[in-house]
Simulated assay, not measured.
Amino acid sequence: MATIELRTVVPAPIDRVFDLSIDVDAHTASMSAAGERVVGGVTHGPMALGETVTWAARHFGVTWRMTSRITAYDRPHRFVDEQVRGPFRHWYHEHLFHQPPTTDGVGGTVMVDRIEFTAPAGPLGHAVTALGLRRYMRRLIERRNAYLVATLSGAHPPG
């Protein structure tokens, strides 16, 4: 199993960061480079506990479908999405949000992504993960987070 943990500081209140992070439209916009689109489940707006969404996107020259479900939801502090069907043997993505105390009055939210995944195909999948899949997945999450930061700070989001 591979793990990824990212910490991103977002210059916005915790409730706004949480709400945009769980929004299907924001996710689709942040993954536009991969042509990601919704093909089932919740099609627009924020998701709630127990809801599913099915994404289709092109990665490594192949179109993949992945259905994920929101399995934990504690607004505005935490939610978890897990793969129900899709390319991974296992996919677990925990999103954590906290607003640390500040002395400068500027504030912001620390967003933490904790991801655990296992590629398919046993030893071959393990090798693919080691050779670049982990790095590729990390960059996708970094791109999504850059989109969230840009959107919430009023800048033009990256494409």
Score class of each variant (00 low, 15 high):
112 V>R: 13
28 T>A: 08
100 P>N: 10
125 G>I: 03
112 V>A: 12
56 A>Q: 14
24 V>T: 14
11 P>M: 10
153 S>P: 00
72 A>K: 13
47 M>N: 08
114 R>D: 05
153 S>T: 05
103 T>I: 13
140 L>M: 02
158 P>H: 11
142 E>M: 04
34 A>P: 01
7 R>E: 10
33 A>D: 03
65 R>I: 04
133 L>C: 08
83 Q>N: 09
38 V>Y: 10
156 H>L: 05
115 I>K: 00
129 T>C: 11
153 S>N: 00
52 T>C: 13
59 H>P: 00
155 A>L: 07
81 D>Y: 07
36 E>C: 06
24 V>K: 05
39 V>P: 03
1 M>G: 10
83 Q>E: 09
85 R>F: 09
44 H>M: 08
137 M>S: 03
145 N>F: 04
7 R>S: 06
55 W>K: 06
131 L>D: 09
141 I>C: 07
92 Y>P: 01
19 D>Q: 14
152 L>M: 01
52 T>G: 06
37 R>C: 13
53 V>P: 02
80 V>C: 02
46 P>A: 15
44 H>F: 06
74 D>E: 14
84 V>N: 08
143 R>C: 05
81 D>W: 04
72 A>P: 01
91 W>C: 00
33 A>F: 00
29 A>P: 00
70 I>K: 13
94 E>W: 07
151 T>R: 07
75 R>H: 14
1 M>D: 03
153 S>Y: 00
48 A>M: 14
81 D>H: 11
114 R>Q: 14
154 G>A: 00
5 E>V: 15
73 Y>L: 15
124 L>V: 15
62 V>R: 13
111 M>N: 04
150 A>E: 05
96 L>Q: 12
109 T>I: 11
116 E>N: 03
111 M>H: 13
31 M>T: 00
76 P>N: 12
74 D>P: 01
38 V>G: 06
94 E>Y: 09
105 G>K: 02
69 R>E: 11
13 P>N: 15
99 Q>M: 15
44 H>R: 14
40 G>W: 02
159 G>C: 01
155 A>G: 09
50 G>E: 10
106 V>T: 08
73 Y>F: 15
69 R>I: 06
159 G>L: 07
107 G>E: 07
